[in-house]
Structures are given as C-alpha cells and as structure tokens.
C-alpha cells in the first residue's frame, strides 16, 4: 500500500465520477459483423469513434455512423507492468479502421498475450468483450 501522509485514503482521487463506460461501443450489424458505433462529421467527414455531440476536428454537426469491422494496425505494444484491473502482459494496438477512426484495442493473440502485431497488420474487430478487441486476419 502506498503510504498516506494524512487521513485520506491514498487513492481518493480514483473514485469513479460517472457510470457511463467511456470505451468505444462495439455493435453487431445485421450481417453479423462487429462495428464501432460512433459519429461522422457532416462538415469535414471526420470519423469519430465516440457518440460525441460535435466534431472534435471542426466543431461541425455529426450524424451516427458505424465503422469497421476491418482495419490496419498503426502501432502496437505489449503492456508488461501491473495496471489496475488487468493482468499483464497484454497487447494493445492503435487500429485505423477502414474509412474510420483510429481506435485503441486489445489484440486477441494465441497463448499468453505477450506478442504485439506488427505495424501494418490487417485486423478485424471482435464483439462480446467489454474492451474494444481485434484479432489478426488470416
């Protein structure tokens, strides 16, 4: 336990202030393919992975849009240190969804999760997990 100087618990500022899950929402389309449910800007066409009320790029109006299910790894890493609620090692990737936004996703890999996909690897979204997840295609 970290040492506290005063009477407050040491992690007092980690109290959740919202019950809304901030992670990108994965929805399954009628054809069975998972998509990220976000918005697209009507002014500048920026794809956004979140249901935000305006475009983060230009402030323009947005409409609901879905992105995926496939994309390409922009970069990736393996986290090997303890992170609250997680068991290391685990692989993370920034994935540029085809014609969509860049999203952070866990990479489903065979074995113990200590391999990151190479930059440029084609990946596909997976549904059913609380985290955004992708698996390597092929």
């Amino acid at each position: 336990m970290p040492l506290a100087i005063d009477s407050r618990p040491a992690v007092w500022f980690h109290v959740d202030v919202t019950v809304v899950d901030p992670r990108p929402r994965i929805v399954v389309a009628p054809d069975g393919a998972p998509h990220v449910a976000g918005v697209r800007c009507q002014a500048c066409a920026e794809p956004v992975a979140y249901p935000w009320p305006a475009c983060p790029e230009c402030g323009g109006p947005v409409v609901a849009a879905e992105f995926g299910p496939e994309g390409v790894v922009w970069s990736a890493t393996v986290v090997r240190i303890p992170v609250a609620g997680r068991t290391p090692p685990y692989a993370l990737a920034y994935v540029d969804l085809d014609d969509g936004p860049r999203v952070l996703a866990h990479v489903v890999v065979d074995g113990d999760g200590d391999t990151a996909p190479a930059v440029g690897t084609r990946v596909r979204l997976r549904a059913g997990a609380p985290d955004p997840q992708v698996e390597v295609i092929g």
Partner: peptide, 24 residues
Amino acid sequence: TAFDGAITPEDTDPEGATGLALPA
C-alpha cells in the same frame, strides 16, 4: 504517496478504461 506504479489516464477516459498506461 499516490501511485504504486505507472500512471494511467482517468477511468472516465476511453484509453484509461482500456488499460493504456502512460508508458504504453
């Protein structure tokens, strides 16, 4: 007195909630 290891973004942040510690 506040951190035992790496900093992670807020839990209210998509990256923080997805387990992206700052080193990552």
